[in-house]
């Protein structure tokens, strides 16, 4: 028996070695670009462009950060994004709970029909132009509302929340509470919400991240710069990549005071990537277990 176990162990060793190698390899592939971006953002632009940076920062140079942090437009984008993320997430949570809590009640009249009203929108949507016309007819073009209201509810998130309430809060508790004279509002605030903290954390994070990264609504519905979220400014710097317009002007003013490399715009991009993504990456390791929990709840059919 013991000998047998030993042989098996040897056969398995190859498989384990294979798994560790592949997993390590994939992890390094994911990690490397991230490290490179961090290092490049802190390095001298000339060194970066001429291939001097491979892994760690070389010839540390903070001019790009200095420039980015002085940018009024980046600061404006940041401010707007924080506003949209905070207010938007609060709206999302209120609407999601107002929807999920009643629908988690199995004996609610018309539950099936109401559920269908929501799930159907996951399967079929009107599309870009009718949505645009609606927003225009509502007079929401170029207002902050266009960033907050059209996405007030994610039906998928609502279903995850409903499933959580259904499976984690026993029906007997409701009966007991009702006998004690508790109405549905009181039950929601005193029992359901306190017991739903894990799912509320998941929803807050999911909605928060989606607001932070949102680009489409701003792109479609906003015209004035004062309302732009960070992602729109990022697009100008990262994707359009031309050194024209306001960025060019600002670099000119900057050059009057500071001496910098003609390649500053290269590290500038890495730097902008960092500045916009770091908040997410800082929060992420602490909350990742919540995110994963959410995916698992979502995979249980309600």
């Amino acid at each position: 028996m013991k000998k047998n176990a030993k042989i098996k162990h040897n056969e398995d060793r190859l498989y384990y070695a294979f798994c560790y190698t592949v997993v390590t390899f994939l992890t390094l592939i994911v990690l490397y670009p991230i490290i490179y971006i961090i290092s490049a953002s802190f390095s001298n632009p000339d060194v970066v462009v001429h291939g001097g940076v491979w892994l760690w920062p070389k010839d540390i140079d903070l001019t790009a950060y200095k420039f980015v942090l002085e940018q009024p437009r980046i600061a404006l984008g940041y401010k707007n994004t924080i506003f949209y993320t905070l207010v938007g997430t609060v709206i999302n949570l209120v609407v999601t709970i107002a929807c999920a809590y009643p629908l988690a009640r199995k004996n609610l009249r018309g539950r099936g029909a109401i559920m269908f009203l929501f799930t159907f929108t996951m399967l079929f949507s009107a599309g870009m132009i009718p949505n645009y016309i609606l927003i225009r007819e509502l007079g929401m073009i170029d207002t902050r509302w266009a960033m907050l209201l059209p996405g007030a509810l994610s039906v998928y998130n609502m279903i995850v929340c409903r499933t959580f309430i259904q499976t984690n809060i026993p029906a007997e508790m409701l009966e007991a509470a009702q006998i004690d004279g508790c109405n549905d509002f009181q039950y929601l605030f005193k029992m359901v919400l306190p017991l739903s903290k894990p799912i509320l954390a998941v929803l807050t994070l999911w909605y928060g991240v989606s607001h932070w990264n949102a680009y489409f609504n701003a792109f479609m519905y906003l015209n004035s710069e004062e309302l732009y979220p960070l992602q729109i400014f990022l697009k100008e710097i990262l994707v359009q990549s031309k050194r024209i317009g306001p960025l060019e002007d600002e670099m000119l003013t900057f050059s009057e005071r500071e001496h910098f490399s003609e390649y500053l715009y290269v590290t500038l991009k890495y730097c902008v990537i960092m500045v916009s993504t770091v908040p997410l990456f800082c929060v992420y390791p602490f909350v990742q277990k919540h995110f994963q929990k959410g995916v698992m709840i979502g995979s249980v059919k309600g």
Binding site: I37, N213, Y215, L238, Y263, V266, I273, T277, F291
Partner: peptide, 28 residues
């Protein structure tokens, strides 16, 4: 490893495209 490989999921589309354009730029 799981923490690392899950991370890029939270990068926005704009930043993701920006990363590609920057890293694979033929000149810089």
């Amino acid at each position: 490893t799981q923490t690392i490989v899950n991370m890029p999921h939270f990068i926005s589309v704009v930043v993701m495209v920006g990363i590609m354009f920057s890293i694979f730029n033929s000149a810089t």
